[in-house]
Structure formats: C-alpha cells, structure tokens
Design a protein around this nucleic acid. Structure first.
Lengths: 343, 343
DNA sequence: CTGAAAGCGCTTACAG
DNA sequence: CTGAAAGCGCTTACAG
C-alpha cells in the first residue's frame, strides 16, 4: 500500500506551498478561488486526509468528546437509558464527524483521574457529565482543567457549567396526581441512589405532592436501579402489613422486576396494585400488562446535550436547556383502586 | 491555570535534554538509573503528561480502538448484547489506558467510510468488527487500509483476520436436543437477520440437528432482533394451524416479546409452549416464567476480543480464539410436552 | 551514558 | 494573493 499523502505531497503536485494547501483545505482566505479549487481537486484525487495528530499539535480540536460512565457494567448492559442516551449523542456527533470516547469507571475518583488524563493528553475536546451529586466533586476538577463540559442534570448550580435537564419534579407530580385521581391513597416509590441529584429532586417532589393531595402513606425506598434490588425491595414492600396500592419506580428495569414479584406473590396488577415506571423503554411494553410509564425521548435528550457541547467547544459559550419533561403514558398497569378493593 | 508543562520544561527543571526526558519516561535505555529516577520524580511533581498528539505524530499509537455498530439506535438502546460486549471491551482497554471510540452507522457503506476516515486520520490503532456477513465487503477495505482488526465472528475465513468466536452450532444443537428429550417434535426458530453469518450458522445447525432427531416441523422464521418483530412473528406462528410446541429465539429481546404474545393469546408457558432464548441477560430472569436460555459470558467475549486486538496492535500478530460456547440454562419456560398435551 | 539536531505533518504569522 | 519559515511537543537516530 502506498504511503498516505501529506500536505507536502499535495503542495508539490499542485505546485504551491504547504501553507496554500492548508488555507485551501480549511476554507481560509489566502488563496485565490481558482487555486483553491485546483488544490481541492488534487487533494481529493490523491485521497488526502489531514493527519489528525498534526492538527491537534497546532491546537486544533481532537474531534472527540468524552463520556465517563460510573455505573457497574452489569447495570449498563441491561438498563436502556444509557444506551439510548449514547445513541442520541452519536446522532449529534455524526453530523460533525465527531467521535465519542467512552470510559466506564468504578467511582468518582477514577472518573476524575480520567478527566485529568483526557485533558492532559488532549484526547477529548470536551465532556458530557451525568449522574450529578449534590456538591459534586467532579465539577471543581472540570473547572480547574478548563475542560468544556455540559452537565446532563438539573436544575441546579454546577459551578456555572451549562446544563441540559428536564423537570423531574413535574413528572413525578403528574404521576402521583394521576394515581390519586384513580383513588390511590397509599403510594410507595422505589427510588434510585439517594446521592444522585435527580433522585433527591424526585424524592422531594414526591413528598410534596403526596402531602398536598393527602396521600396517607407516601414512602420512598432507596434502591440502585438494578433488577435484583427492584425485586428485593418490592418483595419487602408488598410483604409488609398495610401494603401500598400503587408503586412508582425510578427506572423501568426495577419496575419490570417489581411486576414479576407482584405476579409471583399472586397480587393482581392492576387489580390490586398499580405500577408506574420511570423511563419508558421497550421493557415497559413487552411485559404483561404493559407498564404505565413516565416517558421521555432519551435519545433526543442526548442529542441536545451533545449539540450544546459542540457549540461550547466551537464558540466558547453555550446556553442551558430545559428539555421537555417526562409525561405520563397510561397503559395496563394502572387502574382505579375502588373497583377491586373498595375502602 | 498554569500552562501544562512540556517535556522541555521537565528537561530544563532536571537539567537534562528533552531526549533524556523521553527515554526516562518511556523506560528506554539511554539514561542512567539515577537520572531516570530524578526525571521521573520531577515529571510527577510538575504533573507532566505527554501530549498525545505529539506522540502520535511520531508514529506512536493513538491509544484508542474503534468500534462501529451497524444497528438501528432503537435496537442498541434495548438489546443488552452490545452494551454487555462494550462493558467487556472497556474492561480490557482500561488495563492499558486505552480508549474506545464508538460510532453508530446506518449501513456498511457508511461503516466503510468510517474505517477510511479513522485510518487516514490515525484516530484509532485498530478496530473490532462485528456482525459479519458472508463475503463481507468490509474485510477487503480493512485489509487495504492495513488497519489492525479482530473479527468477532466465526468460524470462517475473513481474509486472514484473527477472529474471536464461539460455537453457535453446538449451542443450538444442545437446545434442540434438550427440547427433543422433553418430547417436542415441532419446533420453530425465530432467527436473526439472514444475511448475518452467525444467523446462517445457527440456521444450518438447527436444520441438521432437527433432521437427525426427527423433528417433524423445523422451521426458521427470519426476524430482525427487535421486540416488535419478535411479537409479530410469534403471533403469526402461534396463530397458524399445527402450531409448534417449542420456540427458539435468536436473542433475548424477541424471546421476551414472544412470551408476552403467548400469554396474551392464552397459551400456557411452559404447559403448552416451551421457549428458549439466545443470550441470557437480566431480561430472561425478570419475566414470568423466567426463560430457559443459551447463556454465555458476553462481557468476557468482548474482553477476549479486545485483548487480542491490543496484542495485534502491540506486536503485529495475534491468534484467533474459540471462546466457550453458549450453554443451556434451563428455567421455567421449558417443560415436557407430554404432560399437558399427550400426543 | 548524555546532548544537540532533525523530523513527524500540519497551521499560522510574516514577508514579498 | 502567494511563498518561505517557524513552531506545536514529542521521538529517535546521530555524535560526543
């Protein structure tokens, strides 16, 4: 195979200098239109592609953004959220021929080390940050490194970093109002990790709406998004005296696992128990009955965040975005309580 | 923020040349042990990290491998296989601080364009190739580009590229033998895309074992791995006269969707219908009844492939690997047929 | 064992 | 509008 042509080869073939080639290729002024076209034609003919490393050395972009995921691999494998998010991110990057560098990390310390390495090596032009905590120690590092970043979380103050978020409080409120309208008065929520900011936001909103509507038992039980813990927690909740008539889960995976537990315990869904899932993936539709869900367009969410980050990288500034909130999609897993167990 | 130190800064601080710094950092001969340690200490103290672009410009590796995925985003989001594979790949890369660059592509032509770009830009040191076809046109391009690559597929001849594979024929044979032992004589398989090499291998093995064991109706119906088509195909198969007593699905997502269809049609699983899923993810365990599955360690599969690719990149050569075949894990979705519908 | 120099392939002031 | 030169931050022969 012939050696790949360099800009010097193009320059020689076109009878111009390397500088002219560079200007022509990058659409910069400094060459006449005729010369530009001739250079472009020759470059295309010779299959020239600029060496990315050489560009990067001159301070050009790496053409790549980074995403570090701090979840156990077994959760990533089965939870649709992240893969859908990644799909959406990819869609935005593809338009600009940007790449995505993925890294799975065990904890925040490791994630911070990854950011330091990426920054030092100029491996990425910016990062997307997910799963924010309150007082998240990653924020300070990102600022110290001056690494362009968009936070996928909110609302909140993340050291001034732009954020893409949706109103989880509104969504959980909609779900509880719906369940109350169906007659439910004891509702348990199986939440995500308490240290996550969006868990906290949902927990507070859940407590508030329940108090406002006079829900008698409104408890949030923490869990970790895995099917295993979804099963375990559900079994415990449904075995205790005065069990709830409705369950809200913070992700679809736990909701599906919870549905299986209810069925295994002979508790009819939705006759005796209503179930609402957060995040509406295929999982919610392939079980029986299909699950009522708080649905949102996760890929679009990723696309929006990636667009913001690309803008930030290109122009040095971008805006935060409040994306559309999840909305309730009623399916077979929710029903009025009075019809089966009149109080 | 202070400017990042360069090797020249380290050299100045240590009172040596840049060359000495390079030798010290890379464990090359050319500096005394004492000097090396002093340089290393100073580099660490100053937080020095070599600029990746500068290294790459000298022919060093990009420190990244590429994975192009040619599946619709909606499938990627919900099918556990790829995310599990990626988890495993990540695990292998993390040991060596290698990155993974992901790209979702719509078709083979786009995938080939991505390989050309990655190669030309030196963006990746090598690639992992999945979802092989017979006479796959990607192979020639990879060879033309001289891009280090490991094929995750087999057995087969992929232009001499090393391959990591498992014996799908043995696995499907095991499943059919088991179903036959339970008394099933009409078995339908809901397969993956026919153009995929592993679909072809499974289809042939399925036909062979069925003929050998005297299965009367042994049909493979093609599908596309999505839950939607899994439902549609299952509904059709179960609605036709002389419906099978056992179904084998080429992935877990379609199997779970098929189970839901059987339940919606009032067909008892496993009483009247046995179901076997290929790929054993959490999906198979969270449905009711849990699905008998052809189980394999997908993350390990990814890890092995990544290790091979890293070896190929580092040494210029590597070996193919026949990974362990999927094995049957019996669960609640399979039972003897005679107990319910004696022939 | 060590230092000075050239070069990787681009980009970008700087002269003409 | 164009050309020659310097420089990005490393690595690697090549002399001492």
């Amino acid at each position: 195979m012939a050696k790949r042509p360099t800009s010097a080869d193009i320059a020689r073939a076109a009878g111009v200098s390397k500088g002219a080639v560079s200007y022509a290729l990058n659409g910069q002024p400094g060459v006449s239109e005729a010369t530009r076209e001739r250079i472009l034609a020759i470059a295309a003919e010779m299959g020239f592609r600029p060496n990315l490393a050489a560009r990067a050395l001159n301070g050009a972009s790496a053409g790549t953004i980074g995403l570090a995921l701090c979840r156990p691999a077994r959760v990533l494998g089965v939870e649709p959220f992240f893969m859908e998010l990644i799909s959406g991110i990819e869609a935005a990057l593809a338009e600009r021929s940007y790449g995505l560098t993925l890294q799975v990390v065990p904890d925040h310390a490791a994630e911070i080390a990854v950011y330091r390495r990426w920054s030092a090596e100029r491996r990425v032009d910016g990062v997307l940050i997910v799963d924010l905590h309150r007082n998240d120690d990653r924020i300070d590092v990102i600022r110290e490194l001056q690494l362009p970043a968009v936070v996928i979380a909110g609302p909140g103050d993340f050291g001034g970093l732009p954020q893409v978020w949706s109103d989880d409080a509104a969504a959980v409120t909609e779900a509880v109002e719906y369940l109350c309208a169906l007659g439910h008065r004891t509702i348990t929520r199986v939440g995500g990790m308490p240290e996550l900011l969006h868990t906290e936001i949902r927990t507070r909103a859940f407590a508030e709406v329940c108090e406002r509507l006079g829900v008698q038992h409104a408890v949030t039980v923490p869990a970790d998004y895995t099917a295993e813990e979804g099963s375990r927690v559900t079994r415990r909740v449904l075995s205790a005296p005065g069990r709830p008539t409705a369950l809200i889960y913070d992700n679809d995976l736990m909701a599906v696992a919870g549905l299986a537990v209810a069925q295994e315990m002979g508790i009819a869904v939705p006759g005796e128990l209503s179930i609402v899932a957060w995040d509406d993936s295929m999982l919610c539709r392939i079980v029986h009955p299909p699950l009522t869900a708080l649905s949102r367009d996760v890929p679009a969410y990723g696309t929006h965040a990636a667009h913001r980050l690309l803008e930030l990288i290109a122009t040095g500034t971008t805006t935060s975005l409040e994306d559309v909130a999840a909305h309730l999609v009623p399916r077979g897993s929710t029903a009025t309580i009075s019809s089966v167990r009149p109080d």
